[in-house]
Design a protein around this nucleic acid. Structure first.
Lengths: 190, 190
DNA sequence: CCCAACCTATCTATCGATAGACAGACAAAA
DNA sequence: TTTTGTCTGTCTATCGATAGATAGGTTGGG
């Protein structure tokens, strides 16, 4: 069973995603990527004409997969607290997995080096997360205005990204755990 | 009035700091840096033998200056809320100034590409901030344990770094403002 | 036979780093 | 005072590595 074009695209994207989450968009190299999946760099260009194209595809896929998983959570339980536990666990597992970061979080830090097409996808990821969080929050406080819900949701998203960033910087996942706990204690996270 | 060795070191560090806060450590180039301060890249190596040496010097200086400013705040007012206002304003002004980030925040995202000497300085910056925040918090809740204070302090630090990261990613300083406001509403920030 | 998928080979640009030269400052020796 | 020697800061030139990207050739399954 030979590799189809789609298979190869998938393999490249998987390897690329791991690299970006560990080392950032700038560290993404066509040569290294090619070596990892067993082809040559020119062939990677065959699948993804430019680096910006690859980066945008990565971010888009990342957002899509995240959205699918989150939708599943939302369908499975009415409990806001349970949903938030699963949510914080997503970011935790990235750290636990070789000190990786949220793909869009690490890309945000490299914003000025990103092609416009990648930047747009980073924005979409944030918007998707805020939208989901606002939905979860609306269950916990049904009386709040949409405006308030969105602001609260944005605050939670930013706080979690920050906890991940700082914990990663200190190479100490315990920092993430304690910080999330403090978020719950103060009531930022329901 | 000719430039002294110290003057040149200062000029290089100033330019380098601006570059890192805007584009990250990886984007720091001896050639670009040299061009900005009007010398050649070899001369930059005269002042800073290696890139790691320069990066570590930058982060150390950044922490020192920050610590000095924060100490001044602590001496000027007993009011925790006022101190926190000034604190969040520091990170806000970085964003307002050409969408820059906290030097150590952006370096945290590039952690795997940092020489060990730079990594150590990034850790120190976080520790310094948490220490100061814990001191401010101890004024607002004198009965809390040191352990609780430090965890709360870490949560605030991470949340603010995250707000900056996300606002930068969306290129919208309003996101930072609204997020900080939400932090206060929930009581995360006193 | 064709064309999708991959290849070889190469281009230009940039990176951090080093070697070695040179001009000016300055201090000690004559 | 003049000369001599050393130190400082910068320069030019270059190294090997690596980056993204491209042109054009090879190959194998439908």
């Amino acid at each position: 069973m030979a590799k189809t074009k789609t298979d190869m695209r998938e393999a490249v994207m998987t390897a690329a995603r791991a690299t970006v989450q560990s080392h950032g968009y700038n560290a993404l190299s066509f040569r290294e990527l090619a070596k990892e999946v067993g082809i040559k760099s020119a062939s990677v260009h065959y699948h993804f004409p430019t680096k910006g194209n690859l980066g945008a595809a990565l971010a888009r896929r990342y957002t899509e997969e995240g959205a699918a998983y989150l939708a599943e959570l939302l369908a499975r339980s009415e409990d806001a607290s349970w949903c938030m536990d699963r949510y914080t666990e997503i970011f935790r597992s990235a750290l636990a997995n070789d000190n990786r970061m949220c793909l869009c979080g690490i890309m945000s830090a490299e914003l000025d080096d990103l092609p416009e097409e990648v930047r747009a996808e980073v924005d979409k990821f944030a918007a998707m997360n805020v939208g989901w969080l606002a939905k979860v929050l609306s269950r916990a406080k049904p009386s709040a205005s949409d405006q308030d819900l969105r602001e609260h949701a944005m605050a939670i998203f930013a706080a979690i990204e920050g906890a991940q960033l700082v914990a990663r910087g200190c190479q100490d996942i315990g920092i993430y755990d304690r910080t999330i706990r403090a978020y719950r204690t103060t009531g930022l996270i329901p």
